[in-house]
């Protein structure tokens, strides 16, 4: 089977590589760090972990942008073409993010999603089936709004304290029914310890959620997103993969 080029990171072209198993494909003053594989890497947890280990090893040698898992090219020329096509954005992101890390903070509802009580309208019980349906829909929307408000309040408290140590933040409100808030904070490595201490402060607030912190990670969540993302591995197949795995897990636990 022919060799392929898996891309792990974008670096300055003078950045030393951590191992001879990797190579650089340069374009102007930047370069892609690539690894040669004899076949397409299978999509496994181990493969993703290996990708992350390489990204982190590269970043120990200098500023680097993490490349999305599964970025594979036929040859070095194709890699260079891709760099050329995205050069301006990549160079700017490398300058902005190359020496930063991100910390992840997730707020999970304790137990099941909290039951938000909505005052029941006494007239509902006397209404026709159709009207009762509308009452129920209104109550559902009210519950969703109330839950959203509670999640946003938690996000605001997180941002008020943890945001001080970060210069950028990405937050998702209610990304799943179990999760109230999911945030990524972009910061310099020197502030990680202070961030962790601040996280302990947030925990002491006694919020109605279970708080979890992970990191530091390469700044995956903060690289510029471009139109060219359409049609790539994850974008094209992720939903399909998610559904397949979800179905499998439901079968296992159901």
């Amino acid at each position: 089977m022919s060799s392929t080029h898996s891309v792990y990171a974008i670096v300055g072209r003078a950045t030393p590589l951590p191992t001879t198993d990797l190579a650089m494909v340069p374009w102007r003053d930047i370069a892609a760090v690539v690894g040669h594989t004899s076949q397409r890497a299978p999509v496994t947890v181990d493969a993703v972990l290996r990708h992350e280990m390489i990204v982190e090893a590269v970043r120990r040698n200098g500023a680097a942008l993490p490349v999305r898992f599964g970025t594979v090219f036929d040859d070095a020329t194709s890699v260079a073409d891709a760099l050329a096509a995205e050069y301006e954005v990549l160079a700017a992101d490398l300058e902005r993010l190359g020496n930063t890390v991100e910390m992840g903070v997730t707020a999970l509802w304790t137990g099941r999603t909290p039951d938000v009580s909505i005052h029941a309208d006494a007239e509902r019980t006397r209404a026709s089936a159709g009207v009762r349906y509308l009452y129920d829909r209104v109550a559902e929307v009210q519950r969703e709004d109330a839950l959203d408000a509670r999640a946003r309040l938690i996000a605001r408290k997180l941002g008020d304290i943890l945001g001080y140590f970060a210069f950028e933040q990405r937050t998702s409100i209610l990304p799943t029914t179990r999760i109230a808030v999911r945030s990524a904070f972009l910061l310099y490595p020197a502030r990680v310890d202070a961030f962790r201490q601040a996280f302990d402060t947030v925990r002491s607030l006694g919020l109605e959620v279970r708080l979890m912190m992970t990191g530091p990670w390469p700044p995956y969540s903060f690289v510029s997103r471009r139109n060219s993302e359409n049609g790539t591995v994850a974008d094209g197949r992720l939903e399909e993969l998610a559904q397949m795995l979800t179905n499998r897990m439901q079968g296992r636990h159901g």
Binding site: A32, R40, V67, R68, L83, R237
Partner: peptide
């Protein structure tokens, strides 16, 4: 980690897409 490495990071349009 999986969420970051699979859904985020620099995107370059490659020649090959990984089969799932």
């Amino acid at each position: 980690l999986l969420d970051r490495a699979i859904e985020h990071g620099v995107v370059l349009v490659g020649d090959i897409t990984i089969s799932v």
